[in-house]
């Protein structure tokens, strides 16, 4: 009984939050993880895939995350 399903969902939410707050100009570009031009031929390296994933999470999840965080906070305040 290490961790329940809600605990796991919480962990995932916190991880996505962590990815979403990485700043493109101040942080990612400095360590060479800034957004690159996508390789149209598909044979990308692991790093390129990760960079893509981060930028996708940052653009796509920003607004849903607000709602998800509110739901999680309410759940933890009331039932946690």
């Amino acid at each position: 009984m290490a961790i329940g399903i809600f605990g796991l969902l919480e962990v995932m939410l916190i991880f996505i939050n962590a990815i979403a707050i990485l700043n493109e100009d101040r942080f990612l570009a400095k360590i060479g993880w800034g957004r690159q031009v996508a390789d149209p031929y598909g044979q990308e390296s692991i790093k390129a895939r990760l960079v893509n994933l981060i930028s996708a999470v940052r653009t796509l999840m920003r607004i849903p995350l607000i709602g998800l965080n509110i739901v999680a906070i309410l759940y933890l305040v009331i039932l946690g």
Binding site: M1, A2, I3, G4, I5, F6, G7, L8
Partner: peptide, 12 residues
Amino acid sequence: PTASSALAVIIL
């Protein structure tokens, strides 16, 4: 909790 943690492992 047992069922929940087993499900959590599968989802992980």
